[in-house]
Design a protein around this nucleic acid. Structure first.
Lengths: 334, 334
DNA sequence: ATGAAAGCGCTAACAA
DNA sequence: TTGTTAGCGCTTTCAT
């Protein structure tokens, strides 16, 4: 079936050691031998088994990427840069989508361990840190993306969520909004965005009510649902800060269907600056996370940790950036 | 570091064969022994190496998925269903994004072969069929998604693109449009959509000009660019059929910036019915591909081919469905 | 019911 | 410069 190193060796009339050497460019091989072997490999369409070489101690040249939902543009865009960067370094990526489901999180992490990935990038909301702790204990390089490390001693890469929440909320406040609802996720990253939301209020001497903070899971449908709930409760916000673009889009859609004009009746700020933020009408004002930079960086970090396992763990924060588009405007309701 | 089967065996005071048997539920093991071994595995957090077991002839329980661009919502949504379905069957998925780049296509396919994936799903536009032919020759199950098999004898799953193109164009024609531009991709799937476009014209006794068919690569930016080009050439279409939602969104954006009213000045039909089609304003009229059904089906097919390599190859066509939203309306320009 | 041992495809000493 | 050989962690006969 698939040719092995033995097939190549036999066809070339050399030993498997020689074949191995020409594959890996190690040792001293006579040019003529090298050429001969290469020709045979070509002819047989020989693909050395990564399984076998991994077994001998070499790496698998594979990274595991765990995200909550690959169909969320934020993560698919992130996955794309991560993949590109990884492949530049000769590594491939196994992507797992956990659906924010604790069972799946566990299953996928274990799967990645069994596949002996050289390193793991975890962008998913981990409820059970014990699981991650175990991979760290087994010395598998791990870096957290988009959330901090929760004390398991790994490097983490995220944007300054506190600042992001602060900027988003401050923008709404400065436009004259006073009744600002925040729609957060259950995810860890939301925590700091909430603090930012609170801080912005305090800076302006405004009250914050826990009642104005809603929580849901990222999806357009959930965004719609939460907004419906908000309205049903008789709350009349003029501004909404949604923890991601998906939710923001849901709010936009629902609000429009209710006959609200955006941004005149309702201003909305999203988070992530995904492709969705550019396709809505009006365009979505949002907090940009530098997806490309973060993706590239996380790959660079994980690769350097693979090379040297004892690197100092750091907490890398990128700057969020407020992108003002059309969903926010001066509050004329006051 | 990571415990091996030897560590477990030693700790449990049994042989590795016994450990192997309890892992795989094979052979006859005394209950007490089984329990003892299981307890040790638990305690050591033992994860059997998939590398090692793959080497002994077992599968890798991994599927390779090759797409042109994972950040295109069509493919990320597809990837999500494929992943979900695959994981239900205990298989994981390695996703590769080729960027429609022939080099990368080759690189990734070879990578997947080296990783000994049990099967491959190829949704990417393959220019060099020779490469795919080789994987088929090596008896690796392969199914093509979203494009037909180009004579390499594998099963393919796609929607009836001819019909999709026909319906999209017929819809525009029935709304009174006569100057309909088609923006296609270089991809194989576009070929049939173009035939559909032509057929629709012929059915209505209308002329088709090759000049009205543009080609580009899927992205919002390219959609904008092509539309600019169209306008620059002095062509004034009232209808546009774009081969995917991304391009359609680009057209919408560019047209709006030019001050055109949609759908009054310009009607647009997309293709794919991704999340983007729901977020534009007005909503995008588009041809839906049943992403979930196709994704599930392709996994089922590949898994059954893995189980039995000599299955009859088939060509499975799903039905496209015209989803009418707000970007199309009766042509009032005539 | 359990274990010894061969072998999967490759790497890396070590010999020759 | 090239080849021999002992593993890597696991599965699977075949003995015991």
């Amino acid at each position: 079936m698939k040719p092995t190193i033995y097939d190549v060796a036999k066809a070339a009339g050399v030993s498997i050691a020689t074949v191995s050497k020409v594959m890996n460019n190690t040792g001293n091989i006579r040019d003529t031998t090298r050429e001969k072997v290469k020709k045979i490999m070509e002819k047989l369409n020989y693909q050395p088994s990564l399984m076998a070489s991994a077994l001998t101690g070499k790496g698998t040249e594979t990274l595991g990427l765990v995200v909550p939902d690959i169909s969320n543009p934020f993560f698919s865009e992130m996955a794309k840069t991560i993949e590109d960067r990884a492949h530049e370094s000769g590594m491939s990526v196994i992507i797992c989508s956990t659906d924010e489901n604790t069972e799946k999180e566990k299953k996928y992490i274990e799967l990645l361990q069994r596949k002996q990935v050289d390193g793991m990038i975890v962008a998913s909301t981990f409820h059970d840190m014990e699981i991650l702790k175990r991979v760290v204990d087994q010395k598998t390089p791990l870096v957290m993306l988009t959330q901090d490390d929760a004390g398991i001693g790994v490097t983490s890469i995220s944007v300054d969520d506190f600042k992001g929440g602060l900027e988003a909320t401050s923008h709404l406040i400065s436009e004259g909004h006073r009744d600002i609802i925040m729609i957060a996720e259950y995810a860890k990253s939301s925590k700091f965005r909430i603090y930012g939301y609170i801080e912005a209020h305090e800076e302006h001497g405004l009250e914050v009510s826990e009642e104005n903070i809603f929580r849901t899971v990222a999806s357009i449908e959930n965004g719609r649902e939460v907004f419906r709930k908000i309205v049903q409760r008789g709350i009349v916000p003029t501004g909404i800060f949604a923890c991601n673009d998906l939710i923001a889009v849901g709010v936009i859609q629902e609000a429009k269907e209710m006959g609200l004009k955006i941004p005149n009746d309702l201003s909305i700020v999203g988070y992530d600056n995904t492709i969705l933020a550019t396709t809505t009408v009006p365009g979505l004002t949002t907090i940009a996370q530098p997806i490309t930079e973060m993706g590239n960086r996380v790959v660079d970090v994980i690769i350097s940790e693979i090379k040297d396992k004892n690197q100092t763990k750091e907490r890398i924060l990128f700057e969020p950036e407020l992108i003002i588009r059309g969903t926010t405007a001066v509050n004329k309701m006051r």
